[in-house]
């Protein structure tokens, strides 16, 4: 029996060679998209799981937007313009749900596939490298996150919560947030030993969700706490989306984008190296 050289190998060399300069050999075969293809096949059958995830931020939007607005009164949006409470929390909920979705996918799901289903062992027995696996899984998480974000934005549009045409950019921005959290989530997962460790993820995510200014502006905090919260990634996500939604853009936008780019890059490199250590040993 003979094997013809898989046709994609030569084509992917150009792409692969860039990654090869910074990563050890054998990490990347330039074929992360086949891992993505697998995810599509799996979820074609269990679309309900995907579909249901769309509703969580909507519930928050309806429940807290309608119920709290009277208690909270008028709030000030970016640029100091008064806006409705619902319009205030909507972009923040979008950022939070991008984070939550990406973290869930990259911790729970990845941990299960790695430790129990041995899925990555099977993938790495083929000519795929760890970076293909990491990119494919993150790509899937992004696709799913993109669907949710688009759905949520349509609801915002219909409810008249978008104040600017810049709001369209919330979609790529939400994907950037998801990408950064997904990459770091996978890196963290690669250090986990038992399901108990997954609970600790909650310990990091829940306070970030509630403290990062989703439901009120950071001005209620004492100065020191404000500084701490301003260092957290979700704060940057919320500030970025709120700014885009209101069309108030300033230099801070660049800082937000840079923050997430660095986060994604670090997460991705750590993940690829860890998968290499964990699975190829």
């Amino acid at each position: 029996m003979t094997l013809e050289a898989p046709p994609t190998i030569a084509a992917s060399n150009a792409r692969a060679s860039i990654a090869l300069r910074v990563l050890p050999p054998g990490l990347y075969a330039g074929r992360g998209y086949v891992v993505l293809e697998r995810a599509f096949r799996v979820y074609r059958r269990s679309w309900m799981v995907i579909f249901s995830g769309f509703f969580e931020p909507l519930f928050y939007l309806f429940a807290l937007g309608t119920g709290l607005h009277k208690l909270v009164g008028t709030v000030l949006g970016p640029g100091g313009h008064p806006i409705s409470y619902t319009a205030f929390i909507a972009p923040a909920l979008l950022a939070s749900s991008a984070m939550n979705g990406a973290v869930y996918d990259s911790t729970m799901n990845v941990f299960f596939k790695m430790k129990y289903a041995k899925l990555y062992d099977a993938m790495l027995a083929t000519s795929l490298g760890p970076l293909d696996v990491a990119l494919g899984e993150i790509g899937w998480a992004l696709f799913r996150g993109g669907l949710y974000a688009a759905g949520f934005m349509i609801v915002m549009l219909v409810m008249g919560l978008m104040a600017s045409a810049w709001a369209v950019l919330m979609l790529p921005a939400a994907l950037l947030i998801a990408c950064a959290f997904g990459a770091v989530g996978m890196a963290v997962t690669s250090y986990m030993k038992s399901f108990q460790d997954l609970d600790l993820v909650q310990v990091a995510i829940l306070p970030m969700f509630l403290f990062s200014g989703t439901f009120y502006s950071l001005s209620v905090y004492p100065a020191w706490l404000r500084v701490v919260v301003e260092c957290l990634p979700l704060h940057h996500g919320i500030a970025m989306l709120r700014g885009l939604n209101s069309g108030v853009l300033d230099g801070a936008m660049i800082a937000h984008v840079a923050y997430f780019l660095v986060m994604a890059a670090v997460g991705l490199v750590v993940t690829a190296r860890r998968l290499d250590r964990l699975l190829l040993r």
Partner: peptide, 11 residues
């Protein structure tokens, strides 16, 4: 702290 004390300031 977040939704009781923090949101409480606003409310």
């Amino acid at each position: 702290l977040a939704l009781g004390v923090g949101l409480g300031v606003v409310v």
